[in-house]
Amino acid sequence: MAKKPAKKSAKAKPAVAKKSPMRSPLVWLLIIIVAGVLFPATMLLIVSGMVPTLVAFIVDNHPRRHATRTVAYLNMAGTFIVAMDMWQSGDDSLQRAAEMLGDPINWGIMFGLAGLGWAIYYTLPPLVLSVKTISNDVQMKKLKQRQLELTKEWGLEVADTAPLIPEDLIADAEEAMKAPGEQRKRTEEDKDKDQVAES
């Protein structure tokens, strides 16, 4: 049986990571206020155009905030395109900013790109899951095949020192594999391999 990895000492204090100042909402609020004072038109465009990112930030409760980041990058690109139009015209007054916000195309650009972000975010994990499923199957087959070869060559004694695979883990894995959309027909060969590996 494999030795369990040594548990970390309970007495060891968790390292206190220094929190980046950019992560503090207050800092951002301050930046926005300062930028709003210095560049009121640009800030009006940005604040208005980045609403989808704000929504994403609110609904995304993942610690790594992948959804927020995905939406934010593209939303920011869209807002930047609209802002560039304003800067190119040389008029960066609040009126001009209001005009631009009155143009639905601009909203389309900003929100469209944010929508593209959402689309990417929702498309990739299932894609990764599919790839991962195939990869796991291939890996599992390889491992079982090798174990079968070893057993054929050296007999069951070769497995004497190997760790036992917890039955509940196998059951959970089988349950996970049977999940909707992931069910697959297991061949007799697979079952035999499992038996050998488990023995």
């Binding site: 050296w154 760790p163 883990l169 959970d172 894995a173």
Partner: peptide, 20 residues
């Protein structure tokens, strides 16, 4: 071979965990 089998089963356990 025993060592290899040991590693193989360890990897298999890890793989089962990944599947779960």
């Amino acid at each position: 071979a025993t060592h290899e089998y040991f590693n193989s089963v360890s990897n298999q356990i890890q793989l089962y965990r990944d599947i779960v």
